[in-house]
Design a protein around this nucleic acid. Structure first.
Lengths: 133, 133
DNA sequence: TAATTATTTGCAACACCGTTGCATTAATTA
DNA sequence: TAATTAATGCAACGGTGTTGCAAATAATTA
């Protein structure tokens, strides 16, 4: 397992390792509130700064759904500083509330004449595997 | 022009009409800060409550993009209480910053075996018509 | 390994955002 | 127009996220 902190040229502090471990542990996107619950004790301000720098460095990415608090998930390899490229969609289950990044085979493209398309983000709500079973 | 407030069974107060007029005036999605700037004088709390009830009744819908403050735009006919159906994508121009709802002809579908898909929201960033010209 | 430098952390303080309870005022209904 | 229902404004509050600065920690260099 690669050392994300070193890779991204961030100092390896106990706190950052701890936060990173939490994001790694979950397979889904999680809101700050869950990170906070998993940390035994922590400093609000440091946590905010940690999240911020993780997003900037492309370690995690933010998922904003309408009416939801922001969620964060570990980035795939293709993410880099300042530019998050997703070959996945963001899925919110209406039953269990889980938000996850789901890889799909053929990522749709759209036609927008006269526009120039940079990034495309797809957010889907419905029932996840588990809840649909 | 139809009377949205009456249609949605909301009392027609001067303030609500004023806010609605602002949303109607703009063709794009706008953040609260613009609504506030356009109102000569207003009460914060009433504005929040107005926005909230407009969203609930399907008069406007919220557009959340990562790292952006929320934007709001008038709903199309197909929107209804509690369920916002969009046959449009949300486009953010990286140059002028404008956020708009853009109608597209063939709205993409995606294949997610084992999942049940309810709603699909597409957010695109790039250059808008104007800035791409 | 020790000394130096660069970075991170925690505190205090603050601004902003959005909400709630309640009394007052305005809009709707009869 | 009177009675009823709903919206508004005030006071107050909790949550969120930020900044400046001093102390502590990590990285770097010798």
């Amino acid at each position: 397992m690669r050392n994300l902190l070193k890779d991204k040229k961030l100092s390896e502090t106990p706190f950052r390792k701890e936060v990173l471990a939490i994001f790694t542990k979950y397979n889904n996107a999680i809101p700050l509130s869950i990170v906070e619950k998993d940390l035994k004790e922590y400093n609000r301000i440091t946590l905010y700064r940690t999240i911020k720098v993780f997003v900037e460095k492309g370690i995690i990415h933010e998922i904003s759904l309408s009416g939801e608090e922001s969620n964060y998930a570990i980035c795939q390899e293709e993410c880099d500083i300042g530019s998050h490229q997703h070959q996945h969609i963001h899925f919110k289950c209406n039953m269990c509330g889980t938000i996850s990044c789901v890889k799909i085979n053929k990522f749709p493209t759209i036609q927008l004449p006269e526009y120039k398309i940079d990034q495309l983000e797809i957010q889907v709500t419905g029932l996840c595997k588990k809840c649909n079973a």
